[in-house]
């Protein structure tokens, strides 16, 4: 036991003299955690949208306004024609194009329901799915608000129209923030990288300098050596874990507010 303690002590002495290593194991890792924590977001935000409004009516403008006011989308200038929508998508200026047909207001007012076309840049299946899901939800929401208003005007109860309501509740990550999902995964990744690298390097260093052979001829057994080489890095790993959790939880709290 005393031998193990001595080996651990020796390893800490090595570390104390090697300021570069200490810096390397703390600062870049925290920097990486922060950059990755911000960059590794699979959330779909700021999707550029262009609208081609052939109807140019009061209702179509109201629909466009409900999309424009949503912060999930970056509203691009209106397009004149379908060809222009297509060109903007080709150029990559927009990822989604919404085409409102000429008879939009007419069909809505007649009660038959209107049609709109959604042109989606589907290169990345995942993000295009999510983005078109969002815009679909906005349009549906606008449509049901419109229906409710119409029903109220006619003196009907909207509840009669749709007898079912679905109430979704999101558990564990109520704001659906991808950071909450990514940060724990990131901690696993970085801790694995740092601790395996450092403990591996410290043994290789002894080999390189030839001091490993010197240790072999002392009463220190391999088990003592391994314990002495791993325990310090275990402690460093715990220390980094604490920092990561602190950063992660701090960020989580900031996001909650």
């Amino acid at each position: 036991m005393r031998l193990v303690a001595l080996m651990i002590w020796k390893e800490f002495l090595h570390l104390k003299n090697d300021k570069m290593s200490i810096r390397l194991m703390i600062f870049p890792v925290i920097l990486q955690a922060l950059i990755m924590g911000y960059a590794l977001t699979t959330e779909v935000k700021h999707t550029p949208v262009t609208v081609c409004d052939m109807s140019a009516s009061q209702l179509s403008r109201s629909l466009i306004e409900s999309i424009r006011s949503n912060s999930l989308f970056q509203f691009q200038p209106l397009s004149e024609s379908y060809a222009e929508v297509r060109e903007r998508l080709d150029r990559g200026e927009s990822r989604i194009g919404l085409v409102i047909p000429e008879d939009f207001e007419h069909s809505l007012r007649s009660g038959n329901g209107a049609d709109v076309q959604l042109v989606v840049d589907g290169q990345d299946a995942n993000s295009s799915n999510v983005a078109s899901g969002y815009i679909n939800a906005i349009i549906t929401q606008w449509g049901s608000t419109y229906l409710k208003k119409q029903a109220q005007l006619q003196g009907k109860d909207i509840k009669l129209l749709i007898p079912v309501t679905v109430n979704p509740v999101i558990l564990f990550n109520p704001l659906l923030k991808s950071t909450w999902y990514m940060v724990p995964a990131l901690i696993v990744l970085l801790i694995t990288m740092v601790t395996s690298l450092l403990s591996g390097l410290s043994i290789v260093k002894e080999k390189e300098k030839g001091t490993l052979e010197q240790i072999m001829v002392t009463p220190v057994k391999p088990i003592h050596l391994i314990a002495g080489k791993t325990v310090p890095y275990l402690l460093i790993g715990f220390f980094e874990l604490t920092i990561f959790i602190y950063l992660g939880v701090g960020k989580g709290q900031a996001l909650k507010n």
Binding site: R86, L89, L108, G113, A114, L118, V119, S128
Partner: peptide, 9 residues
């Protein structure tokens, strides 16, 4: 009210 016809490019 509105039917959305998606077209994936």
């Amino acid at each position: 009210a509105i039917t959305v016809h998606p077209k994936v490019l």
